[in-house]
């Protein structure tokens, strides 16, 4: 049992507030991804959970015990660092065994655990090597094996794949997911890569400027962004936003089209739609085609709607010309609305 509970945690560095009163609960065996741009506080939050940084206020609970006053070694955690932090003066075997030796386990048990985790990470042939003789991907495997060998309640990962090249990253991502699901530990994983977050997470906590904006299942975060920031951060290309003017009977006018929308005291709200939720239609939004980028299965069309940048992912069979005006109809159940001031999601009726 290792539920992680973060209660009202804040972190200030001098005048700069890195984290504003964070509340987050991660269930036992859950895979939680902290997602955000660099500088949003995600790594600081992870380091506070690890005990490498102390919070300015608030409490951290792991497995039912308060840990924020404890040093890292007493928290039942293992951590994988962005630059792997494989000890250069020790062999791969001794690296993986390092934590086990600190626990003073019997030599037989150490052998057994090192071999098992090495096998799991496919590095059993590298056990006698030193870090300098390994590639980046291999070092990454050693770092994960070292964490897994501890059989921790919680594994914390700080952008573990960001230093790998694209192909290797894809491979390691799938492998990590399998291995961590097997190990039944609670995982907190920090990344700025939304694809990584979507593919790995049970839940994603999207962070922005030291706050958690939304913490939900990946598909929820994608489909129903709680705030405009989430829609513009997640998705490639991101969500389109257009201004919507109040029309009669709770309707809103976007460009020259009227949609049923939410109630709001404002005269203008933001209308949002994902690029793939658009289809050419006689009654859609008028869009002037600016750039056409064929992507193979789809074509990415950058247009201008009502003077605003607007992207659509369309069928690649479509015949389009630059400068042409087409009409793009949004799928009605995929339209989202955001408050212009709070930038929070507005419920449509």
């Amino acid at each position: 049992m290792a539920e992680i509970s973060i209660r009202n945690v804040a972190k200030r560095f001098g005048d700069f507030t890195a984290l504003h009163s964070i509340d987050l609960t991660v269930a036992d065996q859950e895979f939680m991804v902290l997602l955000g741009a660099s500088g949003c506080g995600k790594t600081t939050l992870l380091r506070i959970i690890a005990g490498l940084e102390s919070p300015s206020q608030g409490e951290v609970w792991i497995g039912g015990g308060r840990v924020d006053h404890l040093p890292p070694r007493q928290r039942g955690i293992a951590m994988v660092f962005q630059n792997y932090a494989v000890f250069p003066h020790l062999t791969v075997f001794e690296n993986i065994a390092f934590g086990l030796r600190m626990q003073k386990l019997a030599e037989g048990e150490i052998q057994h655990r090192v071999n098992r985790t090495a096998e799991l990470m496919h590095i059993e042939q590298l056990l006698k090597r030193y870090s300098g003789q390994l590639s980046g991907g291999q070092r990454q495997r050693v770092a994960v094996a070292r964490a897994l060998a501890m059989e921790p309640d919680v594994i914390l990962m700080d952008e573990p794949l960001s230093n790998l090249d694209a192909l290797l990253r894809l491979e390691m991502r799938a492998e990590l997911k399998g291995v961590l699901a097997e190990s039944k530990t609670t995982t907190i994983y920090v990344t700025h890569d939304q694809v990584e977050a979507m593919s790995l997470a049970d839940r994603i906590a999207v962070m922005n400027k030291g706050r958690i904006v939304q913490a939900e299942k990946p598909i929820e975060v994608y489909r129903n962004p709680a705030a405009r920031f989430v829609g513009s951060f997640i998705g490639n290309p991101p969500m389109n936003f257009l201004p919507a003017m109040k029309a009669e009977n709770g309707s809103w006018r976007v460009a020259d089209v009227v949609f049923k929308g939410p109630t709001s005291e404002h005269d203008e709200v933001a209308f949002a739609i994902r690029p793939e939720d658009l289809a050419p239609s006689g009654t859609g939004l008028p869009a002037e085609v600016r750039v056409i980028e064929p992507l193979g299965p789809h074509v990415l069309v950058t247009c201008e709607v009502d003077g605003h940048l607007f992207r659509a992912v369309l069928d690649s069979d479509l015949e389009l010309k630059r400068g042409q005006t087409i009409r793009l109809a949004p799928s009605p159940d995929r339209i989202r609305w955001f408050d212009p001031e709070t930038e929070q999601s507005l419920q449509a009726h």
């Binding site: 690890a50 040093p71 890292p72 070694r73 955690i77 293992a78 951590m79 934590g99 600190m102 070292r146």
Partner: peptide, 9 residues
């Protein structure tokens, strides 16, 4: 830091 998380003072 890695050493600290692996049980070192």
């Amino acid at each position: 830091e890695a050493a600290w998380t692996l049980g070192c003072t």
